[in-house]
Design a protein around this nucleic acid. Structure first.
Lengths: 229, 229
DNA sequence: ATGGCAAAGATTGTATACGATCCGGATCAG
DNA sequence: CTGATCCGGATCGTATACAATCTTTGCCAT
């Protein structure tokens, strides 16, 4: 009851969470500068707390901090983008399997609510919000699998995936991936680990295939970095 | 040439590295308190920089920070210990495969030097130093595999493995695992991905089997945590 | 007009001061 | 003697002041 006071100054964790949310929803785009003074004034706190939050996010790969220059929302290279999805392909299918084998009725209900929210966001044309929920769906699977260590890793991967999608997604309009989550949820309902693992593998390949990761795009950025900022 | 000045005050990264090294070498054991003032005086810097370092290490799971109480070297539970090795078993075999397929002659030479140092440390009866080098060996494989994202994850896992070993290792004397690294190195020399993957899988199972992770030990801690710590 | 250079402004890096919280011992009632 | 309560010391949390660094802008020489 003491932490619910809205007038109390936000902690570093809260600021980090809010910023993470904003980046996941593509309300803050890669390359944006996050000035300490600016963020501090927005949240009504000093720079000390803001610095903690920024360093946390930098450690998760969401920001890059350049000494004496400031914190910027990260712009993953094509190589990093590939690595992120390779890592996800390595870790998430097995996690989905474990989740399917362990999921309780409550877990299923929670995921259904999640998907409903995702559909609602899509219907309301709030693509950013839908994307964030989509990421949370994957994170819920890790939680259900009861693997806190891997869950933390997947959280980082999903964070970076948001950045990758912001930079390299092909068509802005269609976020037609909800079928995949539906199929995953079905597999979980049946406690079918094999199917869940397979669905997840396919889902991640689908996501990767919708990215535009041509090397042509990777040669430019280093040049564009210098001027566009 | 400017960063090599030994009189200049250490940065947060340097302090974090030194502390990490000390924990990996078991010179600082789980449960040890790291006071901000104390660490600051040791490194000749203010608390601000120390706090940054401590928070970095906490974020990697090496320390646990309790609000208004201080930072303590983490004491992973049995569950966490299992999770760490499950995660390693999930990630490292494939990484070893990729490393075997990509390793250059220089990489092999570096690993050989690494193993020599490891043997030397064992011969000098410096078990802690040998353990740190052993961890670095695994990390080198990730670097050779050219997977920066997964490398960062493995770094965290190795950190926590050091803590797990400090807490749950069975016999203090024998660190007879160097055979495994030798076999891995052989597989890399032959660029035999299959063998490397299989060797790594077996190596990690060996490590896990040498831990004493009985539930008896896991029922106590939650109780012991409350009073002993 | 262009290129280098210098000074001003802005932003981050660090230390320190002050306030908040927690732990431990002392005191006292039962 | 046991238990609770209160106070002092110590440690952490935050804000702020000052120093270091970078960027920008204006000027001058070529």
């Amino acid at each position: 009851m003491k932490d619910l006071d809205p007038t109390s100054p936000p902690t570093a964790e809260i600021i980090a969470f809010r910023l993470t949310e904003a980046v996941h929803e593509h309300r803050i785009l890669p390359g944006t500068k996050l000035s300490e003074d600016e963020v501090g004034e927005i949240f009504g706190t000093g720079r000390t707390v803001v610095r903690q939050a920024l360093r946390m996010l930098a450690h998760e790969g969401l920001l890059t901090i350049e000494r004496n220059r400031g914190a910027y929302v990260a712009k993953p290279s094509v190589k990093e983008a590939r690595e992120v999805f390779e890592a996800r392909a390595l870790v998430e299918p097995q996690t989905a399997r474990a989740a399917a084998e362990r999921a309780t009725d409550d877990d299923i209900a929670l995921l259904e609510a999640h998907m409903a929210a995702e559909h609602a966001a899509l219907a309301a044309d709030e693509a950013g919000r839908a994307l964030k929920l989509s990421g949370q769906f994957h994170l819920e699977l890790a939680r259900i699998a009861d693997q806190a260590t891997i869950e933390a890793f997947i959280r980082q991967l999903i964070s970076r995936s948001s950045l990758v999608i912001a930079l390299y997604w092909r068509r802005r309009n269609a976020m037609c991936e909800s079928h995949a989550h539906h199929a995953l949820l079905d597999a979980l309902r049946r406690h079918d680990g094999d199917s869940a693992e397979e669905q997840m593998k396919g889902h991640l390949l689908d996501l990767l295939s919708q990215l535009d990761l041509r090397d042509q795009e990777s040669a430019m950025p280093s040049l564009r970095e210098a001027l566009s900022q």
